[in-house]
Amino acid sequence: METTRIDTRFAACKAQNRPALVTFITAGDPDLDTSLAILKAMPKAGADVIELGMPFSDPMAEGVPIQLATQRALAAGQTMQKTLDMVRTFRQDDDETPLILMGYYNPIYSWGVDAFVKEAKEAGVDGLIVVDLPPEHDDELCLPARDQGLNFIRLATPTTKGKRLDQVLKNTSGFVYYVSVTGVTGSGALDADAVADAVSTIKDHTDLPVAVGFGVKTPEQAKAIGKNADGVVVGSVLVNAILDSLDEEGKASDGTITAVTSIIEGLAEGAKAAKA
């Protein structure tokens, strides 16, 4: 398929000898305007690739931080249309930062797969991560998305072994997202050596960049993981920062945007030092 912003950005980071910093927030958390402002501020703070969560009522693979972020977004009235419109607005000022929509299949299925991939591409989305679509169901969304020029980024996990790894990689494009722990997002203790081994195994099977996520919280971890990985994914620590910044009524405060960007700045420093 054609080269996407994701391919270009990972290649650029590689040329700079550093891992890409991939940052996640939930669209519409804690409200649409604040979320859009955070989204726009992320590249300047050091985000190389952005994952924007499509809120879903039943986020089975998420730990408490992203569950709460999802609930905040839905309570504030976030919809799929608003999420796509956020991407459109973001693209007016930024035509280079790759943007990936991440979530669960039902809101997309409800929208209609063909219409969704068309509108997502047109809005400026570069890739999709859909947690509950394993390669067994590539015909559902992965292949229609690829035909539309969207990368379909697959998660590989510690349970993805042997022949299954090739099956998982088969229709994956953009990059491979290695889930560093068995567990939900934001959980578990990172074992940098085990992650390095896993990344190296995946790299024996593919030329795609490998990004690592689930449990990266600090600049030190970003540095340690980024030593072997092509990308470092952070999410829970950012949505926790949003939560901590809210006022007594649960609304965004003056500090909400900088609460997120200051963490991204620190993580970007950590990532930059990874391969030095």
Partner: peptide
């Protein structure tokens, strides 16, 4: 029907 689960659970 089908098997709409995350990759971690798929081998299980």
């Amino acid at each position: 029907g089908g098997q709409f689960v995350s990759e971690t659970l798929m081998p299980l």
